[in-house]
Every structure is written in C-alpha cells, then in structure tokens.
C-alpha cells in the first residue's frame, strides 16, 4: 500500500516482555523514539505488547501517553520463537492498522520484523539509528557495509516497520499506571508451535566475558598472541592479564578477528575468547561509554568495531598507527603487557 499523505501516518510501538515480565531498556528506548516521532508528526501512537504475561509491562509504561494499548498475552508467547512471535506481531499490527511500526532492535524483534512486514505487504528496516519525521517526509538513518557507510533513507511504501538499535534514544521513564489493554490473542495456532525453546547456554570457557551493560569495553588485539620483544609468545601471561582486568574492571571483552580465529597453538590459552566476542568485520559493533583497545593494529577494532564507543583509548607500540590516530582520543605508545599488568595492580588497591 502506498500512502501519499504523510499526515495520515499512525504510529505503533511493538515490544515483547522480558523473562521477568517487564520491558527491556531497549524497548523503553524504542518507546521514546515512537513518542518523539508522534510528537514531530503531530499524531498519536499506540503500544502493543506481547509475552507470557503482559500486565506488568503494560503497567510499567501506563503513563507514556499512548492512545491505545494492545496485548497478546499467554504461555504460547513466553519464549522467543519466530512463528508465535510473528503471529503476535502480525495480530497487533492488524488490530492497530498503523502505518509506522517501531520496535526495539532486540534479537527477538529483529528476527520477526521483516517477515511480518512482508506478510502484511509492508516494508522493513532494521538497525535503524534514528527516525526523523517532518510534514513532508519520514527518513530513517542506518549503517551499511558494517558501519562504514551511513545512509539516510526514505520510503513511500506503508506500513513501514523499523527496528531501532539500542543506544540511540534515551529510555523512557515515567510512573507506573494501570492500563486497560485490548487483548488481541491469548494463544497461537498449533502450526506455530513446531519449535520449542529448550534452554539458554553460555558458550566458551564459562567465563562471562560479554557484558552489554558494562561501561567499558576492552578490545584485545592479536598483538597479545605475538612474539614479544624477547622473541617468545607470552600466552599465559596475556590470559592472566586480560582476565584479571576483566574481573577487576567489570569490562566487557571484545576481540579482533585474528584474535578469535587463533590457530591451535594459542587457542587453549585464549579459550575465553569466542566468536561471540568478535567486534568489527563479522563481529558486532557494541555500544559502551568507554573503549580501551590493547595490542590492536588494524581496521576492525578502530574503524568498525569502535563505531559506537564514545570515549576511546588505545595502548599500542606503534606511535604512527594510522588506525588509532584520528579514531582514538588517546593513544599510549607503550607495551600493553606492562601497562595492563600495572593497571590490574592499581585496580586491586
């Protein structure tokens, strides 16, 4: 469906509940996005929530000013499962009949948004970092080519589903308030239940090294695995230093591609580093307030993986490293083994 008149846009926020029944920070950020957009378009917005029990979540945002609240609540919708999630989202959309659908870019929502958009003959965008509306046009900003190229796009087609990445909007805060939500569905058809969620696992050595809510990201580069000035590799020392730093600072750990692709000579010493830790290239571009890169030389950490790190510092032996220059706020030209050992010592005090 094409919609020429932008002023006709109706906005819908769709969110899922967390295990404890509340809404995640990411969903509350998306709520801010929807609310802001409604204000800039002088229109109203509706909210749809799905999950095992949506009451708590709806109450959590009861004072957000939504025109309408919709709910898909029931045991079938407890787990993140494409078929039931898409059934819920489709149901909420069809009930609300909005032209703009906003959701948080969580793994659960990102999985279903494009498919549902297709079902209802709409279009979808994921990894959106901002949405701007004016009287004449609605634009979305997102990254292409692994955060290397930034694009501002627009579409005339509606409905337009947009998944907004976390970290771009301030999470909505407000008092709890009881709301009356319109129930859209309470169970899903049997065909949607061919899959079952059977568990949640932490891969790797068991060390929890990825902490999305940490203030600091430590990025370890392949330099930790290379021969040092004495001509030998100090893998065990590197392991001790990195893990020591993580436990003392509470930082999340990122690694360059070379670091997570280690050959078997070094794999054991760095077994706490899995592909899930990788940033840049085929890894993630996590969002943290601070980032400390150690022993990195190359594009991944500094150019792509660091895109969403606010304050950046690097410890590197190459003063002219073109990857750190212009990308980091401070570059310490020094041996990271010595510096980080000292940092650990100071953090222990």
């Amino acid at each position: 469906m094409d919609q020429g008149e932008l002023s006709m846009d109706k906005i819908l926020l769709i969110a899922h509940t967390e295990a404890n029944g509340s809404l995640s920070k990411a969903s509350l950020e998306a709520l801010t996005c929807a609310k802001d957009l409604a204000a800039s378009l002088s229109t109203t917005f509706a909210v749809g929530v799905f999950g095992e029990n949506t009451a708590k979540a709806l109450e959590q945002i009861g004072s957000c000013g939504a025109e309408k609240y919709l709910s898909v609540s029931g045991a079938d919708f407890k787990d993140a499962r494409y078929a039931t999630d898409s059934y819920a989202v489709e149901g909420i959309y069809r009930k609300a009949q909005a032209s703009i659908v906003i959701a948080a870019g969580t793994s659960r929502m990102n999985r279903v948004i494009p498919g549902v958009a297709h079902r209802v003959e709409g279009v979808a965008e994921l990894h959106v970092s901002s949405i701007a509306g004016s009287a004449t046009e609605l634009t979305a900003t997102r990254w292409l080519y692994r955060q290397r190229i930034e694009a501002v796009i627009t579409r005339a087609s509606r409905p337009w589903f947009l998944g907004v990445d976390s970290g771009n909007y301030t999470a909505w805060t407000g008092s709890t308030s009881a709301v009356t939500a319109e129930s859209v569905a309470t169970e899903a058809p049997a065909a949607c239940k061919r899959s079952k969620v059977v568990g949640l696992e932490s891969p790797g050595s068991g060390e929890q090294t990825i902490k999305p809510d940490a203030e600091l990201l430590m990025v370890a580069g392949a330099g930790w695995t290379k021969k040092q000035a004495d001509g030998t590799v100090h893998a065990q020392e590197a392991r001790k230093t990195i893990l020591g730093f993580l436990s003392k600072s509470g930082a999340s750990l990122g690694g360059s591609k070379a670091m997570v692709d280690l050959d078997s000579e070094n794999r054991e010493a760095f077994n706490f580093m899995t592909h899930l830790n990788q940033i840049g290239q085929t890894g993630t571009s996590p969002r943290h307030q601070k980032g400390l890169s150690t022993c990195c030389h190359g594009e991944e950490p500094h150019a792509v993986g660091w895109r969403f790190i606010n304050e950046r510092r690097a410890v590197n032996l190459d003063a002219n490293c073109g990857w750190a220059r212009g990308k980091a706020d401070v570059l310490y030209v020094a041996d990271a083994f010595a510096v980080m050992a000292k940092v650990n010592e100071l953090l222990s005090k």
């Binding site: 190459d318 002219n320 073109g322």
Partner: peptide, 16 residues
C-alpha cells in the same frame, strides 16, 4: 611527516 592519507607508516601501508 605522516598524514594517515598518503604518507603512512609501513605497517599501515600493509593494511591500508
């Protein structure tokens, strides 16, 4: 006088 664009270090020449 490294400028990171045309005059780069030898290591950056490898990567860039």
């Amino acid at each position: 006088p490294y400028d990171g664009t045309l005059l780069v270090t030898q290591q950056d020449a490898l990567l860039i």
